[in-house]
Design a protein around this nucleic acid. Sequence first.
RNA 1: GCCGAAGUAGCUCAGUGGCAGAGCAAUCGCCUCGUAAGCGAUAGGUCGCGGGUUCAAUCCCCGCCUUCGGCUCCA
Length: 663
Amino acid sequence: MSDLRVTVQHAEQRDDRVVTIGTTAADLFAADRSVIAARVGGRQRDLAYVLADGDVVEPITVGSPDGRAIVRHSTAHVVAQAVQDLFPKAKLGIGPPIQNGFYYDFDVEKPFAAEDLKAIEKRAREIVKAGQKFSRRVVSDDEARAELADEPYKLELIGLKSGSGTGDGADASDASVEVGEGELTIYDNLDAKTGELCWKDLCRGPHVPTTRHIPAFAVQRSAAAYWRGSEKNPQLQRIYGTAWESKEALAEHQHMLAEAEKRDHRRLGAELDLFSFPTELGPGLAVFHPKGGAIRTVMEDYSRRRHIEAGYEFVNTPHITKSTLYEISGHLDWFADGMYPPMSLDGGTDYYLKPMNCPMHILIFKSRGRSYRELPLRLFEFGTVYRYEKSGVVHGLTRVRGLTQDDAHLFCARDQLPDELDNTLKFVLGLLRDYGLTDFYLELSTRPEGKAIGTDEEWVEATQLLREAAEKQGLELVMDPGGGAFYGPKISVQAKDAIGRTWQLSTIQVDFQMPQRFEMEYQAADGTRQRPFMIHRALFGTIERFFAILLEHYAGAMPPWLAPVQAVGIPITDDHVPYLKDIAAKLSAKGIRAEVDSSDNRMQKKIRDAQKQKVPYMLIAGDDDVAKGAVSFRYRDGSQRNGVPVDEAVAEIVDAVDRRIQV
RNA sequence: GCCGAAGUAGCUCAGUGGCAGAGCAAUCGCCUCGUAAGCGAUAGGUCGCGGGUUCAAUCCCCGCCUUCGGCUCCA
């Protein structure tokens, strides 16, 4: 009986160790209870893994990203076991870890009700407490088929795996958690005392050693989901849950969810009187109230100013057009599902609400002969478009049916494309930073297979141009295969908000197709006719959506330059109203949106109201202030500054607005 | 579009097969006050819409509309 040599790899250091045959990963890390799995030669393994000579073994701790995923995956198993305990007829779908949690899909006769979820969580807690052992077992395809004869979805996964050999892209990614690559494995859940089989599931693993190694979890909600993500397939009932390395981490996550709910722009929109969705208008059609309108106006005005500085020209186009335009552009072939149905006018001519601005901007280009001297030509419009989104997808201001894009189309010569893309990206990122978003990464979306026009060469070239521009920005670049529009690939700017959520904002697309379809041309220096290249670019994405993102980012407490009411005067008694009105007039003269609360409420109540409206500056005045020609500031954080001379107070507010700082 | 849940006063929400309730907001009065809710009164509802069951429906059943959670899709 000989010994084995293994290497224990910690973050910084390596330990060479000699151990006896039969030593497991668990033995190596027995001293550290936070270790729940191991990576051996780059592959994740259970702690029960028996070491081989020469193995390089790295611990996976419960709180690491991999560790959390393992805990969540194991919790998904526990929940599935609980479901099958309570609903023996439930058939298993898949149950992978996802960001911040996990889900598991089930085919059940009746969807889960709220009480069902409670019962499932209760049963899952019992299973966790029981400390069942996760035990891995390699099986052949045929053995797996025999054991899982009652699990039609698992059988389908086995078929997929043995059928195609390699993973077939995005579709297989979630399912790979179950079957993985190479050999099939089943995980048995064994009773802690008797070793009796409690439950089993086809699974790649790894898992925590026992259910007791699940420190904290919660069942969250259920919803329907299509089997393997296709609406052609039956719908299963999905249970979402979350699991964490400690009760504290779970509580923190739940606190974050509560915080996100408080920031929900739909809630803030009502509380701050910014916008609403009157049912009389129909789903996804918003109206902006005066205060929401004030924010929008500032957003748009500032954006206009910056666009002028960057060499854009402003255009305007109608909201409705004959079908001809979208026949030429190809939208009716490729995008008709996303468009409102036509209205038939003038004895049979179809008119459509416009879903995109680009064809109209092309017509402006084509309105006369163009010279190479005019390029790059940058046409900009706050263009309102209408998209007939499926009824289940409209969501607040982030997903609407009537939306305004801050849309630009750049027309240039081939050799101008790289610079134009680079400049556009820089411009976009710079403007987003001015709105207070600073944490970005870029995503490159490539050709959508089966839903695209144009040749392979054109797509390769356009994609390459975008990639080069993206790589110049010094930001992380991630790929989004198949995510492009039908006419070209795109770069999108993803921004992280104040509580760590990422939002897709700007998109930049290279388009070889529209110029061809519309037979665009300009006259080059040598007198020849050339076809321009086209870049589509939306900066905010849509104003409505960007509005919502800013609102959630700032939790409604907009920086002064964007706040709908920038300062409110609060008199100690009615006697001080004229004095404050005078100050408000001084502020208005400087372009500040200022009001005086002259209601007959008590001053404490006025402060509360202003606080709830998240007004950045409260200007309080009583006898003391009037006597000194001063006001007293109260800021949103509750702090105060008393007896500030009026001119100084005005200057402070004007300065904060000018510098677009948050206070 | 699909699955599930919900819809009662401007908002947040109670409630019942037999005349519809609270708090906040609104309006009117009193109070004139120094940093998050002063007191009182008044007004406000076809209980989402349309059918059905019933002596009687806000409540039970069916359909539709809208919203919410997801799937799919996407800005």
